[in-house]
């Protein structure tokens, strides 16, 4: 048997009422690797990412973090049961999430945002948490903004703080949900370069993105989603360079030209 993947997704399905958004998606993300997910809007890639973190409860299928089932577990009789929220919360700490809309908490300073979870969730002392928080802010090159409120920061800076906040829970993997989609073009680079550094440090990452050049440069694997299914997957040179699927080719032609 090969090495345990950091994240394993098995036959994941999700429907909102009659609408089936994910129709059975399976893939592995190995420790230290970067997986990019591309696809048109409505293809299900954001929902997939949110299901992995249980911000949406999957309709069926399994997610394993380091071999541990994420939202479900089997009871004594082998029945599959939804874990209580407290356990889901425990598991969520293993995954850092970065949102399209940053979602910084406006009533806390930059450092306050970063150390909130380490103190309240991990139970760290304030001193430890501040040390950790400053380290995380240094990784996104924002040490000097620690005492500011988020409203005073540019969009790119806010998104970097959001990355620091996710890093501060010391996750096993980072999930990025279109982290640059709500940024002006001139601000995307500072966020992408921080993400590039993280990838270089060996961080396990899943990135939903429309930045094809970034996906090609950083990813180990690229998944192309279409209508709730993985239409094509493989190394970036293949999926982005010479896609086998006609749909993938069509999708890419809109981005590369």
């Amino acid at each position: 048997m090969d090495v345990m993947p950091a994240i394993r997704v098995v036959d994941l399905r999700k429907n909102f009422g009659a609408l089936e958004v994910l129709k059975g998606v399976s893939f592995d993300v190995h420790t230290g690797s970067v997986v990019s997910m591309i696809g048109a809007s409505g293809s299900g890639k954001s929902t997939l990412l949110r299901c992995i973190n249980f911000l949406e409860t999957p309709s069926s299928g399994d997610i394993f973090i380091d071999g541990e089932p994420m939202g479900f577990r089997s009871d004594a009789s082998g029945q599959r049961r939804l874990r209580p929220l407290s356990e889901v919360n425990l598991m969520r700490r293993e995954l850092g999430m970065v949102f399209q809309q940053f979602n910084l908490w406006p009533h806390m300073t930059v450092l306050g945002n970063v150390i909130e979870a380490p103190i309240r969730v991990r139970g760290m002392s304030r001193k430890q948490a501040v040390a950790l928080g400053e380290e995380c802010l240094a990784r996104v090159h924002l040490s000097e903004k620690a005492r500011e409120y988020p409203a005073r920061l540019s969009g790119g800076q806010q998104q970097r703080v959001a990355i620091a906040r996710a890093l501060a829970i010391q996750p096993k993997a980072m999930l990025f949900d279109e982290p640059t989609s709500s940024l002006d073009p001139e601000l995307t680079d500072e966020v992408l370069s921080v993400m590039r550094e993280l990838a270089g440090d060996g961080t396990t990452m899943i990135v939903v993105t429309h930045e094809m050049a970034f996906a090609r440069e950083v990813s180990d694997r690229v998944l192309f989603l279409h209508n709730g299914l993985i239409e094509e997957e493989g190394p970036p040179e293949q999926v982005l360079g010479a896609p086998k699927s006609e749909r993938c080719r069509q999708f890419l032609s809109k981005y590369l030209h």
Partner: peptide, 14 residues
């Protein structure tokens, strides 16, 4: 914004 709550959930807050 519902995102503020989701960000907190994603950090494992109850």
């Amino acid at each position: 914004p519902v995102g503020h709550v989701e960000a907190a959930r994603a950090c494992g807050m109850a």
